[in-house]
């Protein structure tokens, strides 16, 4: 009996015994070579970009230098300069950092709101769900790009946070819809009913009982959203409605290519930024897709 007990205790010490969704997802990523490489590369880019941007002097980079306009790549300027004589490489680093930051921020804001919205609609169901879904339908049919641009152009105190909130305000519907349909299924399960009979409040049941059970879906969706949001941000910056020009984004560099001269003859200004956006979005997507396959498979198994 005693032997048995120590045995049990040992098992309890072993953390891998717990069915944590995070750990399972992590295992799946390690198994999927493409996703693993993507994740490593992504981490490297992130660390590199944030590290260098920390050392770089942003004012130095965005200062106009009329003696070095449109320099092709050279030893002094690794990737040349733009029409204001500003170093492209430095802008690329800072732009990547800014794009990543805003991607994370928008994903977080829209994610938190969308998850809460979806959980509440799905958990309560009935009239609540119906009313909330009509609101969601309305937001979903709005012309997203245009409304964001209009808002961006009329907001007086325009900051990174304001920009993120505007983007998130028109971008939470996808995840909300997904979470809602999952919550609708989940709330029928007995453990939710049990919590009700045990006197647990609705808020606690929603966020402490149901939410942990759909955490893998949340992680997968948030990852895929991150890729999309990086793309959307750079698109808006490309049109000139992301950051102001003094805060470079990857989209800002691409927007120089709307000048036919730049597009045709000065590839060093826009091609690296284009490649970087593509690579980052693909990598994030690889990770997200691997996670999605993992959760799908788990659902199929039981």
């Amino acid at each position: 009996m005693e032997v048995n007990n120590t045995n049990l205790a040992n098992q309890i010490q072993d953390p891998t015994k717990s069915p944590s969704g995070l750990k399972i997802l992590w295992k799946e990523i390690v198994r999927d070579k493409l996703a693993l490489v993507s994740l490593i590369l992504l981490t490297l880019i992130t660390v590199f970009v944030y590290g260098i941007a920390f050392v770089l002097d942003q004012d130095e980079i965005v200062r106009v230098d009329l003696f070095a306009i449109h320099e092709p790549p050279s030893e002094e300027f690794i990737l040349g300069t733009d029409y204001g004589g500003r170093d492209i490489f430095g802008q690329l680093i800072i732009g990547t950092r800014n794009s990543l930051s805003i991607g994370f921020l928008v994903t977080a804001i829209s994610g938190i709101f969308g998850i809460a919205f979806g959980l509440i609609a799905g958990y309560f169901g009935g009239y609540t769900d119906n009313a909330m879904m009509r609101v969601l339908d309305f937001f979903q049919v709005l012309p997203f790009t245009m409304l964001v641009i209009v808002f961006v152009s009329i907001v007086p105190n325009y900051t990174i946070l304001a920009f993120s909130i505007i983007m998130a305000a028109f971008n939470w519907m996808g995840i909300a819809r997904l979470i809602r349909s999952k919550a609708l299924q989940e709330k029928e399960l007995d453990y939710v009913q049990a919590s009700k009979t045990l006197g647990t409040s609705h808020t606690k049941i929603i966020f402490r009982e149901v939410m942990p059970n759909i955490s893998s879906l949340i992680i997968v969706t948030m990852t895929l959203n991150l890729a999309a949001n990086i793309g959307i941000e750079s698109g808006l910056s490309f049109l000139g409605f992301g950051f102001p020009e003094s805060t470079p984004s990857l989209g800002t560099l691409l927007s120089y290519a709307t000048n036919p001269q730049t597009l045709e003859y000065r590839w060093w200004i826009w091609v690296p930024a284009a490649i970087l956006i593509l690579v980052m979005m693909l990598m994030v997507r690889n990770v997200g897709e691997a996670l999605r396959r993992a959760t799908d498979a788990r659902q199929r198994r039981g």
Binding site: G21, D190, Y191, G199, E209, P212
Partner: peptide, 21 residues
């Protein structure tokens, strides 16, 4: 009153939250 009335559920697999100790 709620405390005095409790319930045992049919399905022992779905009535315990799998994510909780």
């Amino acid at each position: 009153l709620r405390k005095d009335v409790q319930m045992i559920f049919q399905d022992p697999y779905s009535s315990l939250n799998p994510r909780k100790r």
